[in-house]
Design a protein around this nucleic acid. Structure first.
Lengths: 175, 175
DNA sequence: CATTTTGTTCAATATTTTTTGAACTTTGCG
DNA sequence: CGCAAAGTTCAAAAAATATTGAACAAAATG
């Protein structure tokens, strides 16, 4: 059992919620917690990514649990989500059964994963709702159809603009 | 009291949650509710905007309350938020004390208001957190400083890219 | 200026979302 | 295989968020 934990500097050991983390780690975790909140993800996901981001070496789930003081369940689910988004990668370590995690640092990859996992499905759902809407309007009297058709065209224009903007933004992040 | 309500077509009058709305109105409200959810706003805000979007004529708050079946409080707060974002405008009607509301339909204006009200403040907060972080790192030993400085530079790069992308995206929405 | 209509505020309540932890599954090892 | 370590799942509890409605304030009306 030679897992020792990536030893960076002095740790704080008070009773606070981030005991065992250095001041920089605390500040980084906080930063990513507020970022997670901004994009509508649970705090625990921000905490995990923040810890991995500040760590010198990849961490295993039990280390993450110990250092952040969260439950196995949250850690497992949070890591799964981050893996799904490719915001973290697993790293294999000889002679250790555990999976070790390291963060993806490329903004483009982070954004792409997030868009794919979180935004994409919602956009698809929106497209389905719009299709349903169009069907309802098509079944109306000519008079109503004209009025409602106008508004629906507006949404369709929005949808198209949105679809064009995404690959564009990603390309922007490339360089 | 000649407010009569913008009379578009047949209404459904069942006991459902959107009684008093036509099928198209229901579908549009649903569309905007899911959009509201996507961007992290309360359902009621999506309902209100959706109703105004589907309405032929501007609506007053009491009409919104009656047709969506929500409380005065929600309606008042929701309309305030939409007004702050300039997602709705008030329209004056001679001989009527109430404010009437109509929706902003331009995607660019909608996005700009949302960014200003919802995203901007968060980004500012992020910038403050980053500054605090840099101060902490500056006070560390040279050894630690080197390690942490690296990661912080990475965030700073992200921040800069993000700042460049926003006006760019808005310009994209212009056309 | 008293009254009524319109709109706001905010503490209490309801709803939704997140977290927990114990039971369960899977995997590697001798 | 049998055991132990690693990781997942999900129902229940906790925390966060949104909604309600009654009390309040502002503004027009007569």
């Amino acid at each position: 059992m030679a897992q020792s934990a990536a030893g960076n500097g002095k740790r704080i050991r008070n009773g606070g919620s981030h005991s065992g983390l250095s001041p920089v780690e605390v500040a980084l975790v906080e930063y990513f917690v507020s970022l997670a909140d901004l994009v509508g993800m649970p705090k625990s996901v921000g905490e995990i990514y923040g810890l991995l981001f500040s760590a010198e070496a990849p961490l295993a789930m039990d280390e993450i649990i110990a250092r952040l003081g969260l439950s196995k369940g949250s850690a497992s689910q949070g890591l799964r989500f981050l893996r799904d988004c490719q915001a973290v990668r697993t790293v294999y370590r000889a002679g250790d059964r555990r999976d070790f995690y390291e963060p993806e640092l490329g903004l483009r990859n982070l954004a792409a994963g997030f868009l794919r996992e979180k935004i994409g499905p919602r956009l698809d759902e929106g497209a389905r709702k719009l299709a349903r809407l169009e069907k309802i309007v098509a079944g109306e009297t000519p008079n109503l159809r004209k009025i409602h058709g106008n508004r629906i065209d507006r949404i369709r224009t929005w949808q198209k603009t949105g679809q064009r903007i995404i690959p564009f933004a990603l390309k922007f992040l490339k360089g």
